[in-house]
């Protein structure tokens, strides 16, 4: 069935479902485009050419896919362990600011990435502890922690880490600590993100620890009866999730020119955690599915430029179309999630 799980690589049903959902989304989007007087074939043509028609386009697709791939993994690990972890946003902020702070202390790339992961994981810890030891529902705690993280990081951006010569940004990542660029503004962040996704897959499906996590995600009582420790499983799920989002935040700042800094108002680090939820749902909460779905989201972003210029569709309409497609595509994943919730799979 849907949760057979043991050999998910061979299970193509979710993949086919998502493909059909994408198709349906595009059709509804086309109807909207016609309603507003635009030519959907032309619009979609330029969307795909913009995203995949040139090396530059492919590079920007990959660039846009990177941060949301990591935050989606956070959500996916949570869901697989039976928790609804929406704390990726907060960990992402902390990863981002950590990279700025620590690379400027010591201009080393690996140190920046490490501290980003560490702070991301640390920020996930309060929600984990509250959940495991006090039974506080993770939706409540992570939402509140996200806001605390947001305002704290905003303060760091305009306060101690503002760039005195360019006060609408933080100080920049020193050149020695920036991620190497492969070409066309694309850094090695995408490779690290894909490796992270593959590692997450191995963790969940090919280790004892991962088995315990998934087992307690399906049924906590049964897992405990089977000799596993659901509490530890949930703890690890939060920590690894925070780690991944922290990495995403750090790489967002360290791997993206031309500024290599966080903008005032956190404009270039905001929203990736929430987008990650959608990416994860479309990828059916499976790490390998998430690689594909993040690429899909990246394509949608990268294609907007040519869609605006050559098909003359204004950005607002493009956003509407993309919203429709994303919603349609997320429906099968959402359905899965709801079924799980109503069957009592989500831990209480």
């Amino acid at each position: 069935m849907r949760r057979s799980g043991s050999s998910p690589l061979i299970n193509f049903k979710p993949f086919v479902e998502s493909l059909i959902a994408i198709l349906v989304g595009f059709i509804i989007g086309a109807i909207v485009l016609i309603a507003f007087g635009y030519n959907p074939l032309e619009a979609y043509y330029w969307l795909f050419i913009g995203a995949l028609g040139s090396t530059r386009g492919i590079a920007s697709t990959l660039k846009y896919a990177t941060p949301i791939m990591l935050t989606a993994l956070t959500f996916a690990i949570g869901t697989r362990t039976g928790i609804f972890n929406i704390g990726a946003e907060g960990s992402f902020y902390f990863g981002a600011i950590a990279s700025v702070i620590f690379t400027n202390l010591w201009g080393n790339m690996w140190f920046g990435l490490l501290m980003g992961m560490l702070l991301g994981a640390l920020w996930a810890l309060p929600a984990a502890i509250l959940k495991v030891y006090r039974g506080v529902h993770e939706v409540i705690s992570t939402i509140m922690l996200n806001w605390i993280a947001w305002f704290f990081v905003l303060w760091l951006i305009v306060g101690p880490y503002a760039n005195p010569n360019d006060p609408n940004k933080t100080i920049r990542i020193p050149e020695a600590a920036r991620l190497p660029v492969i070409g066309y503004g694309l850094s090695i962040a995408i490779i690290i993100a894909v490796i992270a996704a593959i590692l997450t897959y191995f963790l969940l499906w090919h280790t004892t620890m991962g088995f315990g996590m998934r087992a307690s995600g399906i049924n906590q009582k049964a897992a405990r009866y089977g000799g596993m420790n659901p509490k530890m499983a949930i703890m690890w799920s939060f920590i690894i999730g925070g780690l991944l989002s922290g990495l995403g935040g750090a790489m967002k700042v360290m791997g993206e020119g031309p500024t290599y800094a966080i903008s005032q108002g956190g404009a270039n680090i905001y929203g990736f955690g929430f987008d990650g939820i959608g990416v994860s749902l479309v990828g059916r909460n499976h790490p390998l599915g998430i690689i594909l779905s993040a690429l899909f989201f990246g394509m949608m972003r990268a294609g907007t430029a040519l869609m605006q210029v050559n098909a003359h569709v204004p950005l607002e309409i493009i956003k509407v179309i993309q919203g429709i497609i994303v919603i349609t595509v997320a429906i099968p994943g959402l359905y899965d999630l709801l079924v799980r919730a109503f069957r009592g799979g989500v831990a209480q």
């Binding site: 920007s60 031309p258 903008s263 404009a267 990268a302 430029a305 605006q308 210029v309 950005l315």
Partner: peptide, 22 residues
Amino acid sequence: LVEMQSNSEDDYVKNLETLASQ
């Protein structure tokens, strides 16, 4: 006249490049 809006700061380079490459 071709107009282009930016969805976020991440789009500035992308938008300018797209236009310049034409």
